[in-house]
């Protein structure tokens, strides 16, 4: 049961030291976005994990439904030609 006074849930994304994209690291509760970022700093970057934080209200995330898994993803199973494995790479290019 959700208590009306419970803080909303936020999903936290952190970009690590090494560039790369923000990665989902977990979630937390906070009264608003500013506090969510502060809490994320304290909960998820205590050991120097990040250089940038995104927070998104969990309720604002639109997600695919697990029940739709079949129609959404199964058709891609049989389409091996979508993988770029059919090209001949000239020797002199070496490793790509």
């Amino acid at each position: 049961m959700t208590d009306k006074k419970e803080w909303p849930l936020w999903e936290v994304f952190i970009r690590s030291q090494h560039g790369l994209a923000h990665r989902h690291v977990g979630s937390l509760h906070a009264p608003d976005a500013e506090m969510a970022i502060m809490n994320a700093r304290d909960v998820y970057t205590r050991r120097n994990e990040g250089v940038s934080i995104w927070v998104v209200k969990a309720s604002d995330i639109a997600a695919s439904s697990p029940g739709e898994k079949g129609p959404l993803f199964d058709p891609a199973n049989s389409k091996v030609y979508r993988h770029p494995t059919f090209y001949e790479i000239p020797e002199e290019l070496g490793h790509m």
Binding site: H29, D42, V43
Partner: peptide, 11 residues
């Protein structure tokens, strides 16, 4: 009052 606050204050 909240787990997040517990960590923050301890920090």
């Amino acid at each position: 009052p909240a787990l997040e606050e517990d960590l923050a204050l301890s920090n």
